[in-house]
């Protein structure tokens, strides 16, 4: 017969509404690995890097972009202004890791794409949690 098999353990189901109400928030690592995969179609580095720039967790680097996540499994944090992509953060990210496009997963953003473009910052915002249900392949 030959061949091989892979044994996988599935994590807890991520349910949109439970995520939004804070009833069931995945850990940063769980969410990060999943998002890295949806963003890049590549497998997330294991374990995830622990780097943190201006409150943005670094998820790793794919062939064409750097992936960041602004997230804590804490409802109050998620609702706060802290949980957003801002101009200051965008600048910090580009400074920390120049060269590739930055894809940032965050609950909100408070900077327009135009301002980012004018400031010459190659940063893309991907909204949480909706991004979880949309597989982006460019």
């Amino acid at each position: 017969m030959g061949g091989s098999f892979t044994f996988c353990t599935l994590g807890d189901a991520i349910e949109m509404d439970k995520l939004l109400t804070g009833e069931a928030l995945p850990t940063f690592e769980q969410l990060g690995a999943l998002l890295f995969h949806t963003a890049t179609n590549e497998v997330a580095p294991n374990p995830l890097p622990t780097e943190n720039v201006e409150g943005c967790g670094y998820l790793g680097e794919s062939t064409d972009c750097h992936v960041w996540l602004i997230y804590r499994p804490d409802l109050e944090f998620l609702k706060s202004r802290e949980a957003a992509l801002t101009l200051i953060r965008a600048k910090a990210l580009v400074k920390a890791k120049p060269g590739k496009v930055h894809r940032v997963f965050a609950p909100a953003k408070f900077v327009s794409q135009k301002l980012l473009k004018d400031a010459d910052l190659p940063v893309e915002f991907v909204p949480l949690p909706f991004a979880l249900y949309r597989i982006e392949r460019d």
Partner: peptide, 24 residues
């Protein structure tokens, strides 16, 4: 479906967790 409602107002309330709270 609250998640749907949140999505429907996401252009007005930028943070979905806040939107969910309001919907709630």
């Amino acid at each position: 479906d609250p998640a749907y409602a949140v999505r429907m107002v996401s252009d007005i309330v930028p943070n979905p967790w806040i939107a969910r709270e309001i919907v709630g």
